[in-house]
Design a protein around this nucleic acid. Structure first.
Lengths: 275, 275
DNA sequence: TGTTGACTTTGACGCCCCGTCAAAGAGGCA
DNA sequence: TGCCTCTTTGACGGGGCGTCAAAGTCAACA
């Protein structure tokens, strides 16, 4: 029979923990004397160790309680372990991703003295209805002009209420010299209609698919500077063990009406873990 | 200018989080009207995203605060990142170990329907002074007799106060058929003396070295059953990616005086990560 | 102009597993 | 008897918000 201090020392735990486990009904002392002193026996060590071992597996004390009381069959035990395994695998991957991100940033500090892509964030984006015109543009300036045209004509022609935010989707490959774009607005309601604009442009309803892992970066400034943002996000994707998984999007978050003042644009790249 | 709900939706965070960050001084709304409504601008997204990105790296909000306010130079930033990298690496290894343990237990359930080695726990053991006799024993029975002899003669001959707990250290290799043992007591004080016992045995002061990673298992029952416990701990070590790193110990936790009643023994194996 | 109904406010509690501190009592040694 | 160590109960804290409650605001529609 040991008092709590000695027992704690043998088991390499704190007295506080033993009291807490008693409170939870996980491990009662074999005897408590009238003054309140707790007494433990060496024969309780296997039970305590079983608790600690299960805790190591990542189970909560709540989950451990029925397990050590033998109130659970092998099947339930298996199910719990399988579930824990899934979570643990997930945790390993998350920690590895975290590690890659940290190392990527250290590398950036080392080579440039500053951190680019400091504000790249991964999100999940839900599917959304989309009313857009498809257009092959010669160059950036051409694209900017078409965007202005679409904004102006759409706000005039399309009834209010279903317009939400201006989005440009770019299916452009690096190798191409022309830009393959969709230019239009995401919708708040699911509407099916077609709108003809001037210069042969035509708005059609499409659906922007959901993307679970979307690398996003918010930038501002004139259009020709978007080049830098794309570069940053590209090296971030590479440095963090991802690869491109679809066409990128540019979401205009600020007043899309006034084309003059610096727009705020969120660039979105669908990505997946590189093989 | 967005109200909190819309801004939260754009940034894919909760309103609660935005209020919390304001409370911490991480991100103030651009404007708060007399009724208390908060208003945010799209231009605050980069700042919010920077916070979120740093949080992804595992920094605490406390640490992030000076970083986004630009009150920290590149050197301090580097130091923080290096420190985080160390921690992240550690976390990866811990999660991997956890995963191995879980999988090892699932495998045990699959092949035997029960979990052996359920109560194996890793501890760090500090160095401790040790007063012991070295003895080559023919077999287990011989060892048990010598242990009884050492216990009886030591408790009679050695002054009280420096005796603590009976420990048997076994340097025996699997291939050998004789047991190479140290049998003696750990000491509470550092004493240097030699004690002669009968049958040519001699107690000398040694030091049990500290072990950082010690796999331990508490068992009870007669000596010949220790075989099973050793088997369990052996397969645990293998199944969890460790390997043996030194002589094992048996620590008698119960009254070492009475040799008859089932002793409670903690078996300790020094281990290291397998290469 | 009133009435919804959706949104927002502050405030508080909860979570998970204890570490840590405080004040007061108990046990053991000189 | 005095003193020192150990133990008791009780409470707070922490990290990063989620969640609920009660009350106030806003915009749209009848």
């Amino acid at each position: 029979m040991f008092r709590i201090g000695e027992f704690a020392q043998i088991a390499q735990v704190s007295g506080r923990l033993l009291r807490y486990y008693e409170e939870l009904g996980l491990l009662d002392p074999v005897h408590t004397d009238p003054s309140g002193y707790r007494y433990y026996s060496a024969r309780q060590l296997p039970r305590l160790n079983r608790i600690l071992a299960l805790k190591e597996l990542g189970l909560t004390l709540e989950q451990i309680k029925p397990l050590i009381d033998g109130e659970v069959g092998a099947d339930d035990m298996r199910a719990m372990l399988e579930e824990r395994r899934t979570r643990a695998l997930e945790a390993v991957r998350m920690e590895e991703a975290r590690l890659r991100q940290i190392e990527s940033r250290i590398a950036q500090l080392d080579e440039s003295g500053e951190v680019r892509g400091a504000d790249i964030v991964m999100k999940a984006i839900a599917a959304q209805p989309y009313l857009a015109a498809t257009c092959m543009c010669e160059d950036i300036d051409h694209a900017v002009r078409v965007v202005g045209q679409v904004v102006a004509e759409t706000s005039a022609r399309v009834s209010a209420g279903l317009r939400d935010r201006l989005i440009v989707v770019s299916r452009t490959e690096d190798s191409q010299d022309r830009l393959d774009l969709d230019i239009g607005f995401s919708l708040t309601r699911d509407v099916d209609r077609t709108v003809k604009l001037s210069d042969g442009l035509e708005l059609r309803t499409l659906e922007l698919p959901a993307v679970d892992t979307m690398a996003t970066l918010v930038r501002t400034g004139p259009a020709w500077r978007s080049h830098f943002a794309f570069g940053a996000i590209g090296s971030w994707i590479e440095g963090n063990g991802f690869e491109l998984a679809g066409p990128c999007r540019e979401v205009f978050l600020d007043p899309p009406a006034a084309g003059a003042v610096d727009p705020i644009i969120e660039i979105q790249f669908p990505v997946r873990r590189a093989a």
